[in-house]
Design a protein around this nucleic acid. Sequence first.
RNA 1: GGCCCCGUCGUCUAGCCUGGUCCAGGACACCACCCUUUCACGGUGGUGACAUGGGUUCGAAUCCCAUCGGGGUCACCA
Length: 586
Amino acid sequence: MNDSTHSGLTVTRFAPSPTGHLHIGGARTALFCWAFAKRTGGKFILRIEDTDLARSSEESARGIMEDLAWLGIEWDEGPVLRHLGGQRPIGGDPRHVGPFFQAQRLALYNQYIESLVRAGRAYPAFETGDDLEVKRKAATAAKKTYRYERPADVQPGVFNEDRWQQACRGDAHVVRFLAPHEQIVVPDQVLGDVKIAPGELDDFVIRKADGMPTYHFAVVIDDELMGVTHVLRAQEHLANTPRHVAMQKALRRTDTGAPFRTPLYGHMPLIFNMDGSKMSKRDKAKIARASLKAAMQKDPSLTPASLAMTLGIDEAALTGFIAADNDALDTAERIARHLKIALPEIEVSDFRGNGYLPGAIVNFLALLGWNPGLKTQDGKDLEKFDAAFIADHFDLARIGKANAKFDRNKLLSFNAEAIGALTAAEFARRWMEWLAEFEPEIHAKASRLSAEQLTILAGALKPRAKTLRDALRPAAFALAGDDEYTFDAAAVEKNLLSADRAGMKLLVEFRGRLDTVEPWTPEAITAAIDAFAKEKGMPNPGGIAQPLRVALTGAGVSPGLGETMAVLGKASSLRRIDRCVQTHGA
RNA sequence: GGCCCCGUCGUCUAGCCUGGUCCAGGACACCACCCUUUCACGGUGGUGACAUGGGUUCGAAUCCCAUCGGGGUCACCA
């Protein structure tokens, strides 16, 4: 630890626990911490809170870092993330305040635990979790507030050597903080000072029986030692904060002897689903379960046993899942794949997999609980901006206090606009990248298109796709082989066969014209269609356009015919028309 | 239940701190119309909110109080 932790530099941190993917709400927290550091010329730290040994994993930590990097939220200090592509690594430890995994900081925590115990501000306690559980339940049953009862031999400010010795001998114990009997004030830049009356805090655990510090303790130690000046986090942490403040007042640094400082807090509004429930990965299990139950009701031949077989999972596990005994993500995902249903996006990786652009997510997230308070030139609220803008304008004073609901429609609209703003070539590049990662089979098919075809296709896809995944549907015609796509019976009947095969006759006639279209561009093709329609005295080109569309794509719906045929190429276009004529008779 | 936080259109919000320019503005969604070769895109217009009740004031979305409503938290999880 060095003096830089005491400089005027603002330091923020995002401190996820590596127990899963990065939640979309966590991404917002990270974004705000990042933005505040950037705005104030400070540092943004990533710290991994892996003190829950049972649930933490390294893969999870890595995944969280990759999701952050994908969003463009890069940490100045923290674990080093090296991209495969050889871009510069993110993270590092220029101030020497690491390591950034809490499990690697045990010695530090223990040192502070002991200092607290010796100062009579903490003490070992020997009750088991079960003992306390009984008391807690009794209190709840009696409609009383449960508070841990401080043992009679524990006195504030007095080192309890007996207990310490007993603990050092190896008796199972936890260490509890000796809560002060005084008012605690949490300095909050969003909510204003939040005051807690004396006696509201009880003696909470700061070191678990397994020797790991609790979240509350580790946070306080690390924030001080890493020089964190501003703690921005979700409001669910507000009720815990008095504990942190109380500890900060009791602690002194073992290196300099200086008292711990209380950082400024900013508790941000929570994000919920539209129905007011928490956004949780359990939502995925809920949807999968409901869909599966509906499917089983519709088709009584589906049994847990047969389903377990087709899904490739254990029958007991599936039965448990259906009964809501477990919310196994893997089961939910298999069910979704089998039933072809979409699971709600909850984690950053979900949005990524479904083809959202990081810029759109960042923009949308920024607006959940914050806004720049600026107007556009025509007087509307400014709400479209990029990360650089946020880094330039972010401001704690403009964080809202009220909880927000996550409106997927609006996100979708933001994403659609972000896609629309891309050039066709840029869209093509991103789409192909996305396909390679998430739809490799389709990527292989799309790779057969020339760069020129792909760009024309991309131009046609852009306005029809709110996400990269959305583009799959309008692109289907171009990815299928000339004799692979199927004809939609209703569309064929309506556009080709009805009215004494009027559409088919026009199609055959127009087919003869196609040879002369030169060059084979969207514009020239469209001109040929228009000219033909005019010549035939049609009120609009629909009379020939629809038969053509059905012949070329099999459906009555597709991108513009000029683009469609240009993407297919002249040879394929003719082949497709011929196949249609053969299939349905001239 | 205790403690704490919050409350403007269905949703995200501007306005609130520094009362009057607000019979409350924007965006998404929705509806209608226009454009149109289908589906989209785009354009124009529209429906739609100050939770309720008391104060204070010449005047309140804005200040105060109460009520109601929503949320968070009360772990050897973070």
